[in-house]
């Protein structure tokens, strides 16, 4: 279970970007994290994966704290950033092997996982090419393959559908559903509300660093669409 307890974030002292955020995400949940630009979604995600400091509170995964046991915490997660961050001068396969090394995968598991996911995202044939020559969509696919390699407990995805072609988007949605069924936690931010509405069973809406909505998608929406709810709660005018 992912627990975000009284999490606050300050970049400038006294100016809270996120104010005492509490979130609990259970196994099997696909959690959509939505909000306007600058609401604090990416900052929160970066704190969860350990690349943003935490001013107050703590973030735990199965009782392991990101502050106290960062290495053990990070072993259980996979992070997909909003823009693909890659070593452009490496080849696709070199990058994936490097990631596998970072998560201590055995040779057998590593090779199987690379084959499985690279073929799923139709990237296998291009793995020997230099990443620099990849298109944006291919880079995004490579980051996704890298995220699935070590079969983590928690998937943190920041705008994962940006740049993907319709088929890859469909594949990703299918994979995320499968992972959730296997008891993994999916936590992702998106601006595409239709995707969030169809794919997720839970939702959190963030406004100026505070949660305005948190709960089961069906209960939250009732008879509205997510877009209508979003406009009502988040957009002022």
């Amino acid at each position: 279970m992912l627990e975000i307890k009284k999490y606050s974030l300050e970049y400038i002292k006294g100016k809270k970007v996120i104010n005492k955020l509490n979130l609990y995400v259970k196994e099997g949940d696909i959690y959509a994290f939505v909000g306007r630009n600058g609401a604090g979604k990416t900052s929160t995600i970066k704190s969860i994966v350990g690349i943003n400091h935490i001013t107050e509170g703590d973030i735990l995964l199965d009782g392991i704290s990101i502050l106290k046991q960062p290495i053990a915490f990070k072993k259980r997660i996979a992070y997909v950033p909003d823009t693909p961050i890659l070593y452009e001068h490496l080849t696709g396969i070199q990058y994936l092997l490097f990631i596998a090394d970072m998560y201590d995968l055995t040779e057998e598991k590593r090779d199987t996982m690379i084959q499985t996911y690279a073929k799923t995202f139709e990237l296998y044939e291009d793995l020997n090419d230099i990443i620099e020559s990849y298109s944006h969509g291919m880079k995004q696919k490579l980051v996704l393959v890298a995220a699935f390699l070590h079969d983590p407990k928690l998937y943190i995805l920041d705008e994962p559908f940006v740049g993907l072609d319709p088929k890859a988007s469909f594949t990703l949605k299918k994979l995320l559903k499968e992972k959730a069924e296997q008891g993994k936690i999916i936590f992702f931010s998106t601006h595409v509300l239709e995707v969030a509405e169809k794919l997720c069973n839970k939702i959190a809406i963030l406004k100026e660093g505070k949660l305005v909505v948190d709960g089961e998608m069906k209960k939250v929406l009732q008879e509205h669409s997510l877009e209508e709810l979003f406009m009502e709660l988040v957009v002022d005018d």
Partner: peptide, 13 residues
């Protein structure tokens, strides 16, 4: 550059 963000999210000290 940006890769430091990824390295930060890996289980490495």
């Amino acid at each position: 550059r940006k890769n430091l963000d990824m390295l930060g999210s890996f289980p490495v000290s």
